[in-house]
Design a protein around this nucleic acid. Sequence first.
RNA 1: GCCAGGGUGGUGGAAUUGGUAGACACGCAGGACUUAAAAUCCUGUGGGCAGAAAUGCCUGUACGGGUUCGAUUCCCGUCCCUGGUACCA
Length: 938
Amino acid sequence: MDYNFNEIEKRWQHYWAKNKTFATGIDASKPKFYVLDMFPYPSGAGLHVGHPLGYIASDIYSRYKRLKGFNVLHPMGYDAFGLPAEQYAIQTGQHPKKTTEENIARYRSQLDRIGFSFDWDREVRTCDPHYYKWTQWAFLKMFAHWYNNKTDKAEPITELIKIFEREGNINVDAACSDVKSFTAQEWNSFSEREKSDILMNYRIAYLGETTVNWCPDLGSVLANDEVKEGLSVRGGYPVEQKKMKQWQLRVSAYAGRLLNDLDSLEWSDALKEMQKNWIGKSYGAEMVFQMENPNPATILESDINATADGPREYNVKIFTTRADTVFGVTFMVLAPESDWVELLTTKEQKQAVEEYIAEIKKKTERERIAQTHKVTGVFSGSYAVNPFTGEKVPVWISEYVLSGYGTGAIMAVPAHDSRDYAFAKHFNLKIVPLIEGCDVSEESFDAKDGVMCNSGFLNGKTVKEAIPLAIEEVEKRGIGSRKVNYRLRDATFSRQRYWGEPFPIYYKDGIPTPLDESELPLELPVIETFKPTSTGEPPLAHATNWNKEGYPYELSTMPGFAGSSAYYLRYMDPHNEEALVSREADEYWRNVDLYVGGTEHATGHLIYSRFWNKFLYDLGYVVEKEPFKKLVNQGMIQGRSNFVYRIKGSNTFVSAGLKDKYDTTEIHVDVNIVYNDRLDIEAFKKWQPEFQTADFILEDGEYICGWAVEKMSKSMYNVVNPDSICAQYGADTLRLYEMFLGPVEMSKPWDTKGIDGVHRFLKKFWRLFFTGKDGEFFLSDEKATPQELKVLHKLINKVDTDIQAFSYNTSVSAFMIAVNELGALGCNKKDILIPMVILLSPFAPHICEELWNLAGNTESITYATFPEYKEEYTIENSFEYPVSFNGKVRFKLNLPNQLSQEEALEAVMASDQTAKWLDGKSIRKIIVVPGRIINVVI
RNA sequence: GCCAGGGUGGUGGAAUUGGUAGACACGCAGGACUUAAAAUCCUGUGGGCAGAAAUGCCUGUACGGGUUCGAUUCCCGUCCCUGGUACCA
């Protein structure tokens, strides 16, 4: 009987769906295992062969774990809110809901064809109100909590109010935006609006004014991880910096815990490193620089008088990691967006400063990055006093100081910081070297190395000694303190878009007011136009009745990462209307044991999700501190493009080997009409009308195409659809081939030509079972020979260890070797082949299910047991000969084949080399490798 | 610039702790079966030299050094590639 994969795969996929073979429930009698894929955004283009790579790897792991007796949770869903559907809606007028549903249907049919063992009863969609109810719920919780630095966790804001009423905010140590201190008495006398404004500074989800990434083309703000090199990650539009009032999440409060808990995770070092850099912890000190006698004459009158909310702080606080260099501070620099700019600009400099700031505002982020090494800046007119030298130093304003990091102001030490150096050289400022023997005539000396000089009490100390001493002195003088700083910033949580979760917030007399939990979900209203209004308001302003009892709802929606931050929890209990996840389900499934997905989420989703989980942990809703225990990053599958070469000004195409003899243009050609880089000329002529009359210059009667590795995309004509591979070779072949291509973590180009090899393997495997009369299914009951047992048990061991190490490509090779060996032995024994079927079933489930069934099993192979490895069957024809240890020299000898243990020892002892190296020492170990090499360890 | 990870045949890629480099597969070449094609099977396949052949020898894991009886593996230097980051004080 032939291997009819199309028929087999269709039949078993139907069987699995009908019997809910992969449905999972809580089962206390079995250990749990949670395998999760990063759920896809269902784009209009559908899946190409690159997308399922990670899904196949995790599916193999899931099926393997089931065979090992685990209760495996392996769900799938859709990250269905997002920009592309909305951009498409703006262009075509199609409602995003409709296109999203169509795309999901297409994804589902493509996924189903590959034979995944997902529990589809647990599917989630982020755009479903039953789902986003819980996204909104988490937002309300964040709104109703603040971060207490003393207990290092989130606590209810109602408790904070009680503290304020009792003792004001003097003893409160919170992660918060800048707040003035107040007494209990003052608090109690504040108006509702004032109280609301103050509390907003403490909330974990808060409305606050900051510099945001504004993308005019998308009409929305973006989070830091959604911007790369000054362009939006989605769409590649330019981004600029803008000060705006936006919803934000106080992720920065969790920076320390996000960093520390990385140690407990089984993630790749590269990924942990990325998160560490993104969080960016640095140790240093904060220090206040007195402004030189804030001389009222040099300060603008308006600022002096603008003291309605208390005394304004003219003195500038800075952050530095090099407190030891304070004797070398010859000027200070403020970020252009800093509040101090307005305060410290003198009348004389006002015009120059305003011009400079206007200039900066005009630049996009991209332009700023491109001109990184161009020095710009302006003098504010004010001076500060160096607290250690007493010297008067000018205060400058420059874009090289960032408002979002530290305090938005720096002390500049040109001798020992390359940026300060460039600035000092450009504006002719003083440079004072502080390290003995360093040469700062050409460049700064940035290394934390050497012995201090020109530094008062620090003279003679090394840099490493000087840093803590300087900080100590700063603290003693009461002008600053030790400080840990993080690069991680709060996440911008508003998007001026339609296709996202609405905020459960309305504005009562302008005060942001949360809905009650019982009012959730607040459903997204249906609208017709998706563009901003003529007054520049977000699309939700088009909605009628978008208000609560006349008070308007928030017009922004939540960003893409909102819905994906807790989806792994929802899968545990997807139909629960009372809770995000029940306590029972959470305590059983706990967290994700294996998470598979791309590195592109390193600084976005994987930070937000960890933050979200920790927040819910603080509130007692989840039991684990971390959501994803082990994480594997699958590599990207790139496209392999083919080219033809047209001679310029003609319709003649020249084969790749001869193209250098002509002046040609390189043209992408559809990879689906190229086989082994040979062009199907007839198909090419039909491909596009302009090629109908094409002529060809061939080599050896064939047209050879050129090739290159590029991104898989329609415009390069290199997209390979998994559906067509399934139709031609079957899903099992596709699964095996994707694994066989190379390690899961590695990026590699897709090249269909190698697929025949694994397909051939499956056919050979199939044939082992059809040895009866007329090629019918037949397995012998005969006992297996030692040789056959060795083949099997070597394979069991290899597959077992390989799967755990995620080394699927070598596993597939091991299967090929085993099948070739069994084929050569003519083995058709039940003892051997039935365990083989079980072993292969995670990789190629359809064919194995079929063979398992033909062998008389009525239950799915999913419920079979992984065969047990017995070492005694696999002992190699080699031995170790242990002798007493007396040294560590190892060497090898060439000896004839087929020596017994005694003969080998004898030969070793008789050899000249042994005599040479032995030299009074004794032999520790002799290793005979099959063949003729002997290692002798002395 | 900084951080991380890489560089092995024509191609994708193997190689426990340093121990037969190139498993497995593609491709290619030759052969068998077939009227023919497809399918299937067999043989060869890093480079070089010698030999009629079995075979033998030399060389070879980006480049240059080092440690070692022995290095794809460890150390130092150089070049190149990929990913992350981009004035983070």
